[in-house]
Design a protein around this nucleic acid. Structure first.
Lengths: 166, 166
DNA sequence: TCCAATTAGTTGCATATGCAACTAGTTAAA
DNA sequence: TTTAACTAGTTGCATATGCAACTAATTGGA
């Protein structure tokens, strides 16, 4: 597992940047943290023997919350491009986790449903999600959790106005 | 720009999840924030007419900090797999931003250097990096910046032990 | 000295992703 | 009603990425 070395290294790495104070800015810290979490999640899924990516898991979860969402809605909820979603769903359909059903009201629309297998897979994945959440937040106080989420909300809103103005 | 709609939507979205408290956990907030930042960054680079991805920019920056790093070191510093780095460098070499030079001391090693063009591109990119950092941190106080970086460090260290124990 | 183990980098195969162009179905306006 | 504009989803082309298997070079131990 090559990346582990990388992660350990980076996490103990101090600022090596004397040109731009890049490593002491929020952005790079966010990026690294998410990379580490994503990697751990993927490892964890593999370790538990689940044939599933993090992205596919999120789709399963959204469908578990509300079965029959259409692809547009799923793309919105999972924060991805509709073409990316198309291909994600195709892979999941091939594995028989989900099912596309053309809407009778509007033939352009596909409603997406969990299959029995998809439900089972999600059921197996749920404790992993919960454990990931616990792991991320261990050693983090309730107050810190509030703090970080508030700061993240602020950052996001900074970019909403930014993107709209482009 | 399709994603903009997505971003605006998601950022005003409240917790729709009654099964697992996923949307009020740190993980998903981190993920969304990074996605938004990455997207804005990419848009910004395109807007400025730079033929460069965020990933390539990071490589340029690392080489600007220390020209002649080998691929192994670059992979470490940029937190990516060596095979991914190989291909990233190939694309950058094709664009004549960087140059691989085989080490005479150890013929297995490639030292990587910025070309003149690579230096120019980095020079043009630098203000964009600085503006991104400013954007991310606007409306964020110095104290909050410290807070979030500390929390992120804690989260990262949670996963160091986790990954090592797998 | 010579062979085994290690190391740096590449490549095949897989995933995920965005944009732009496309098809097909729907809506709205002339 | 008929056509233009829009919408949902797909596909081609591009990027980035990880793992495993590979090559070539180096190192270290018997």
């Amino acid at each position: 597992m090559q990346l582990i070395g990388v992660l350990v290294y980076v996490c103990t790495m101090e600022n090596d940047d004397i040109h731009i104070d890049f490593e002491n800015s929020i952005g790079p810290w966010l990026g690294k943290t998410v990379k580490i979490i994503d990697y751990a999640f993927q490892e964890f899924l593999k370790y538990k023997g689940l044939d599933l990516t993090k992205e596919q898991m999120i789709v399963l979860k959204k469908l578990h919350d509300k079965n029959g969402l259409n692809q547009n809605e799923l793309a919105f909820l999972t924060l991805r491009n509709k073409s990316s979603l198309t291909r994600l769903l195709s892979k999941m359909e091939r594995k028989n986790y989900i099912l596309r059903k053309q809407s009778t009201k509007d033939k352009r629309v596909n409603n997406v449903y969990l299959t029995q297998l998809g439900k089972e897979i999600f059921f197996k994945t749920k404790p992993i999600i919960e454990e990931m959440i616990t792991d991320i937040e261990s050693n983090i106080s309730e107050k810190e959790k509030e703090q970080i989420i508030n700061i993240l909300k602020k950052i996001q809103s900074n970019f909403n106005s930014k993107i709209e103005s482009l």
